[in-house]
Design a protein around this nucleic acid. Sequence first.
RNA 1: GGCGCGAUAGCAAAGCGGUUAUGCAGUGGCCUGCAAAGCCAUCUAGACCGGUUCGACUCCGGUUCGCGCCUCCA
Length: 456
Amino acid sequence: MLKIYNSIAREKQVFIPIVAGKVSMYVCGMTVYDYCHLGHARVMVVFDMINRWLRASGLDVTYVRNITDIDDKIIKRANDNNESIGELTSRFITAMDEDSAKLGVIRPDIEPRATNYIVSMVEMISKLISNGNAYPADNGDVFYSVNSFAGYGKLSGKSLDDLRAGERVEVDTHKRDPMDFVLWKSAKPNEPSWDSPWGKGRPGWHIECSAMGEQHLGKHFDIHGGGQDLQFPHHENEIAQSEAANQCTFVNYWIHNGFVRVDDEKMSKSLGNFFTIREVLEKYDAEVVRFFILRAQYRSPLNYSNLHLNDAKQALSRLYTALRSLTVEDVAIDWQHPVASAFQDAMNDDFNTPEAMAVLFELANHINKTGSLESAALLKKLAGLLGLLQRDPETFLQGDVSAEGYTPDEIDGMIASRLKARQEKDFAEADRLRKTLLDKGIVLEDTAQGTTWRRV
RNA sequence: GGCGCGAUAGCAAAGCGGUUAUGCAGUGGCCUGCAAAGCCAUCUAGACCGGUUCGACUCCGGUUCGCGCCUCCA
């Protein structure tokens, strides 16, 4: 029985799909004007893990993750770069796909781009106006009237009075209420624009997700996710739009993942303290990064540092070491098995990956003690549900993202020389060779089957 | 100012009203020519103050500190 922490209820709830056996899930994806950073990596990996677990649980999942390919920052960046918006966005969509593939993320079923759904957005805005939830202002913008929607604030736990008291919203004289937000922005010179009943313009940010969600998953669907920072105003506004337009509940379960931090501060563009995924992948194996992300519960803050990545690398090495030199068969998971059952319980408890991983380590310990092939098969299979441990162990243990030092052939040659020295009881020479390799980060391990090596 | 989240050992990170979380690092032992890996053992916990209870890291209240949202943000 899967339980999910539902942000709108502020508690864990048993997950009951709208249609038995099926799940409709929408996640707010990236605005493509720059490379993805580690915060984006967390969203991609966390919801990939959720997607995988829902499927492993036998559910038929439709996973939609949108791409925002039109907004202020994109327009500005394209101008700064002297390139077209299309060039800019397709460049960074390609980069995003590369990054996510490296992190072992399975592509969502549908990846809609905002600019392909302008018509749906215009329709939805028209509906909101005729329902009395939105109004065109005299400057050509169309605003959503927050006062017209009784449930405004139910996701973020904010009341309109509190929000107004915050008084951080810039006063726009065209708005009836300071909290009203824009659905349609009238075109300014040299900006991309589309025709609409209110003149040329482009959509506001929030409306795209309401429109694309409805197009692909219907007016009412199961799960909507994204980073914690989207809870307000983005998701709050989505609810206001969709529920006012469609007169029904928009989403049953809201899932928000915690931030990646640097020095206990949120990693963000505006703070400038972010690391791009590709920067990190220059130093660390992508699977180590994925392991690092899933080692924390998805709602907890996750501090990024080299120390923690190194720690994660050591831990993942332990799992791969347990599978080393074992021939693992691909068999179906027996969920009656107590270990598999413990893993399942952990995952069903709001996707508790740290506890699920503890089960994997207990399995590794058992394999190391007994050499059980059955346990090895189970370890690989369970870890696979998290998108981990699917490579050949030697490939992982001997891999080196920086690709410096000796080549495998050179290492094998030195191992052969060392073996000869050992046979001749010339341990000084044998140790010298071992030390030479160690200085380059190569550790030798003498086993009954011969000498193996790995990179530290 | 309003709303919310958190505080666990050297570091990271979970569950749990009473019984070893787990990983990394450390220490001792086994193994090894010596190592490494592995195995065994082991040291470091639950911010502070009250309350509930036979018993609290776990529940309740308060204090302190940290973080987030309230403006674009994953």
